[in-house]
Amino acid sequence: MTTVTEAPPYGGAVPMPVHFDDLDAMGMLHNSRYAVLVERAIVLWWAERGVSFSGGRPTTPDAFNVVREYAVTFHRPVRGTGEISVHFWLESMGTTSADYRFRVTSTDGATVYAEGRRVNVHLDPATMRPSPWTEHGRTLGAKLLRV
């Protein structure tokens, strides 16, 4: 397997495997799998910093959030299995929302397969209504901000 050769100047980059069952009938990464790979990369980044779920429960209040918007533009197909990279960052982090941008690229970042936007909203588990991120979550999120 290859790995990302250079860290991006902002945000995070997570290498992700493309498996045979991620491919469509033409041997290309199926369009629906891009969202899954972006989700897994973002979740992995936050989990490595202690924001995740364990035993079906959030490890911190900031783990309880949902996707409000998702948009993707496809530029080139990912052909076959192997490793790609998901580069993501926060354009902004509001009181209750986080506006992510992302690129799905080759592991060296030279080829952009797709790019897009994803907005997450933090929820209060009792009311299921938007609620503010914690200070801890905001501190972690600041590491992803594009400056």
Results as ranks from 00 to 15, higher is better:
Pro77Met: 08
Glu69Leu: 09
Val67Ile: 14
Ser85His: 04
Gly82Arg: 09
Thr95Tyr: 06
Pro61Leu: 04
Val72Phe: 04
Phe64Ala: 11
Trp45His: 07
Gly50Ile: 13
Pro77Phe: 08
Thr81Glu: 14
Thr59Asp: 11
Val78Phe: 07
Thr81Val: 15
Gly50Ala: 09
Pro77Asp: 03
Arg79Asp: 05
Glu69Cys: 08
Thr95Leu: 08
His75Tyr: 08
His75Val: 09
Ser52Met: 13
Pro61Arg: 07
Thr95Pro: 01
Glu91Met: 07
Ile84Gly: 04
Gly94Ala: 08
Ala47Thr: 12
Gly55Leu: 08
Glu91His: 12
Phe53Asn: 02
Ser54Ile: 06
Thr73Met: 08
Ala98Gln: 05
Arg49His: 12
Tyr70His: 15
Thr95Gln: 12
Phe74Gln: 08
Phe88His: 09
Arg49Gly: 05
Phe74Asn: 06
Arg79Cys: 07
Arg79Lys: 13
Arg76Cys: 03
Val67Asp: 02
Val66Trp: 06
Pro58Asn: 04
Ile84Trp: 02
Thr95Ile: 07
Gly94Leu: 01
Thr73Lys: 13
Phe74Arg: 03
Tyr70Gln: 13
Asp62Cys: 00
Trp89Asp: 03
His87Gly: 06
Met93Gln: 15
Pro77Asn: 03
Asn65Leu: 05
Trp46Cys: 02
Phe74Cys: 10
Asp99Met: 00
Ser52Val: 08
Leu90Pro: 00
Val66Asp: 05
Val67Ala: 10
Arg76Gln: 14
Pro58Glu: 07
Phe53Ala: 02
Phe88Ile: 04
Thr59Val: 07
Val86Gly: 11
Trp45Cys: 04
Ala98Leu: 02
Ser52Pro: 06
Val78Lys: 09
Trp46Ile: 00
Ser85Ala: 15
Thr96Gln: 02
Gly56Ser: 11
Pro58His: 05
Arg76His: 14
Gly55His: 06
Ala47Lys: 10
Leu90Ala: 13
Val86Gln: 04
His87Ile: 11
Thr60Ile: 04
Pro77Ile: 09
Thr60Leu: 12
Val67Gly: 01
Ser97Trp: 01
Arg57Val: 11
Gly80Lys: 07
Val51Arg: 03
Ser52Leu: 09
Arg49Leu: 11
Phe64Trp: 12
Thr95Arg: 15
Phe74His: 14
Phe53Glu: 07
Phe53Pro: 02
Phe88Val: 01
Val72Lys: 01
Ser97Pro: 11
Glu69Trp: 06
